[in-house]
Simulated scan of single mutants.
Amino acid sequence: MAGRHRLALAAFAATGILATMAAAPATAEVSGPDVSSWQHIDGRGIDWHAVRASGNHFAMVKATEGLSYVNPYFVPDSLLMRAAGVARGTYHYARPALAPEPQAAMYAAVVLGQNGMLDLPPVLDMEDSGGLSPAALIDWTHRYLNTVQALTGRTPIIYTYPNFWRTAMADSPEFHRYPLWIADYRGNEGPEVPGGWPAWTFWQYTDSGRIPGIAAGTDINVYSGAQGDFARFANMPSFGSS
Rank of each mutant, 00 (worst) to 15 (best):
M1F: 14
G3A: 14
L7N: 12
L9N: 02
A10R: 13
F12W: 08
A13E: 11
A14F: 02
T15Y: 06
T20M: 11
M21V: 15
A22R: 15
A23L: 14
A23F: 06
A24M: 14
P25D: 15
P25V: 15
A26N: 11
P33D: 11
S36N: 02
S36K: 00
W38E: 01
H40G: 01
D42Q: 14
D42N: 15
D42M: 08
R44V: 06
G45P: 08
D47C: 13
W48S: 06
H49I: 15
A50L: 14
V51D: 08
M60N: 06
A63Y: 00
T64K: 00
E65H: 03
N71S: 10
Y73N: 03
F74V: 00
P76E: 05
D77L: 02
L79Q: 10
L79S: 04
A84R: 01
V86I: 02
Y91A: 00
H92I: 07
A94N: 06
A94R: 05
R95G: 05
L98F: 11
A99R: 11
Q103D: 12
A108N: 02
G113L: 08
G113T: 09
G116Y: 04
P122L: 12
P122D: 13
V123G: 05
D125C: 08
D125G: 07
D128W: 06
G130C: 09
L132T: 02
S133A: 12
A135S: 12
A135D: 15
A136Y: 01
L137C: 04
T141Y: 01
T141L: 09
H142A: 10
H142F: 14
R143K: 13
T152G: 05
R154P: 02
P156M: 08
I158D: 01
N163H: 07
R166Q: 14
T167W: 03
M169N: 06
A170Q: 04
S172W: 03
G187L: 08
N188C: 05
P191K: 05
V193C: 09
G195L: 05
G196I: 13
W197S: 10
W197F: 15
P198Y: 07
A199D: 15
T201A: 07
T201E: 04
W203K: 10
Q204E: 11
G209M: 09
G217W: 02
T218E: 00
T218L: 04
I220V: 15
I220N: 09
V222N: 01
S224T: 05
G225M: 08
A226L: 04
A226H: 02
Q227H: 02
F230L: 07
F230Y: 05
R232Q: 13
F233Q: 03
P237A: 12
F239S: 13
F239R: 11
G240A: 09
S241I: 12
